[in-house]
């Protein structure tokens, strides 16, 4: 693997290999000494053009636990706010000797441009681009599902036949997109539930069932319910009447949560809007994987950085 830009072009074997390495990384996180010498002398740059504390510190922890040097570059207060182009920023990082670049950008496709432009030799990890993809989030979600379902026997397994319901703002969600492609590759069955205004115009090519009625989707007793965050910062239009109506119609409230089988996992990529898309009782229940998702995020990102940066350079993509 040369770059990790999307889950759409990730093969089943590559995805499972990454999740298996993540299992070994997770085992390291349970030791007293949580650090590995693997990426000693390598430099990873966190290039964040969009605010994200959680994803950035997760990548930072992952890189540091592999002994890489980490440079955090956020657009605010940097030369980017003075009008520097992505190309000039990339060439600056190249001159500084970056081996890996973790990029988050408000424009869909920016990581792809960075990886294929020839501006930079570094391995590129997409940490979220516009409304396109957020591959490490989907990988940590898949990792979390696999661990809950198969425990210590997770290695080598896929998610064949696992029924996943993804609820919320599908239109703006790169988490949903990355999950749809990865879950399909791993054999899971995906149902997307959203208000019609928050479903993309053309989803005919998506390997997922579209449903507008949350109660009907939940009545089937899915294995996983994934609640997406209502992204206030992307809600410039009138997508639903008000937040109370959204919570009543598309939120995982106490009543809906109580109807779910006790084996159904409740997932959320965070940060949560408690009382809006997810009730506190669901978020804090034994069925909730929210905290596991955070811990697993570090293991999965360690695996991604290991696979991208540990081998000899110049491999074919």
């Amino acid at each position: 693997m040369r770059h990790l830009l999307s889950t759409r072009d990730l093969s089943r074997d590559d995805a499972i290999a990454l999740l298996d390495v993540a299992e070994d990384m997770a085992a390291v996180q349970e030791r007293e000494v949580k650090k590995l010498p693997t990426l000693r002398g390598r430099t990873v740059v966190n290039l964040f053009f969009e605010d994200s504390t959680r994803t950035r510190i997760s990548f930072e922890a992952a890189a540091k636990r592999l002994s890489a040097d980490v440079i955090n570059f956020s657009a605010k207060g940097s030369s980017v706010s003075k009008g520097e182009s992505l190309k000039d920023t990339a060439q600056t990082l190249q001159a500084m000797g970056a081996d890996g670049v973790v990029i988050r950008h408000p424009s869909s496709g920016a990581p792809f441009t960075l990886a294929t432009s020839g501006w930079i030799d570094a391995g590129v990890v997409n940490a979220g681009d516009g409304t396109h993809e957020h591959p490490t989030q989907a990988l940590l979600d898949a990792f979390t599902m696999r661990r809950r379902l198969h425990g210590a026997a997770s290695r080598g397994r896929d998610l064949d036949g696992v029924r996943v319901v993804v609820v919320g703002d599908i239109l703006h969600s790169r988490v949903a997109r990355s999950n749809v492609w990865l879950l399909e590759t791993l054999g899971a069955e995906v149902t997307l539930v959203a208000p019609p205004t928050l479903v993309p115009v053309d989803v005919s090519g998506w390997p997922a069932v579209i449903e507008y009625d949350l109660d009907r989707a939940l009545a089937a007793g899915p294995d996983v319910v994934m609640m997406l965050r209502i992204q206030a910062e992307r809600m410039q239009g009138a997508f639903f009447p008000n937040s109370r109506e959204y919570a009543r119609t598309w939120g995982l409230d106490d009543h809906r949560f109580a109807q779910l089988p006790e084996t159904t996992m409740v997932m959320h990529p965070g940060p949560m809007n408690r009382g809006l898309e997810i009730a506190a009782r669901a978020a804090d229940s034994m069925q909730s994987t929210v905290r596991e998702q955070v811990a697993n995020g570090v293991s999965v990102r360690m695996a991604a950085l290991y696979l991208l940066l540990s081998g000899e350079r110049g491999e074919t993509p």
Partner: peptide, 16 residues
């Protein structure tokens, strides 16, 4: 993950 030849070879799979 402790080998000294990681950068000289293709990526190696890890084991438990």
């Amino acid at each position: 993950m402790y080998r000294d030849d990681l950068g000289r070879n293709p990526v190696r799979a890890t084991h438990p």
